[in-house]
Simulated scan of single mutants.
Amino acid sequence: MFLDNDSYDKAKWLVLIFLPALAVLIKGVGEVLYWEAVDVWITLINLGTAFLGTILQISSQHYYGGGDGNGQRPRYS
């Protein structure tokens, strides 16, 4: 699966900036308001973030590695 640059940049922002910040926000608010099972939600967000980060890294390696083993970037027509 190939992402265009704009989609990749948005997904990278989501995984590197938004989801970790969301996890911190939910943890903080949840502790202040005594939400039940807040740790479960934080764990789920962090697991999803780790999964998406891995997928993005694989996508990045395919892009810069060419995806076909020749070391060149794929060409888009």
Rank of each mutant, 00 (worst) to 15 (best):
D4I: 10
I58K: 05
P74C: 06
H62P: 00
V24T: 07
F51C: 07
R75T: 15
I17D: 13
K27N: 06
V32C: 00
S60N: 11
Y63N: 09
K27D: 09
V15L: 02
L22T: 04
W41M: 14
Y8V: 05
L33H: 00
P20C: 03
P20K: 01
Y76N: 13
D9L: 12
G30V: 03
R73P: 12
I45L: 11
T43H: 13
Y64P: 05
I55Q: 10
D4F: 05
D6L: 09
A50D: 13
G67P: 06
G65L: 06
G67K: 01
G30E: 03
A50V: 04
V38S: 01
N5K: 12
N5I: 14
N70A: 08
S7M: 12
G30C: 00
D39V: 11
G30R: 01
E31P: 01
I45A: 05
G48K: 04
S59A: 11
L14T: 12
G71R: 02
L33N: 00
E36V: 10
G71Y: 03
L22Q: 02
D68S: 02
G30S: 00
K27V: 02
A21M: 13
Y64A: 06
I17C: 06
G28D: 04
D9F: 07
V32D: 00
A37C: 08
T54E: 00
I17E: 10
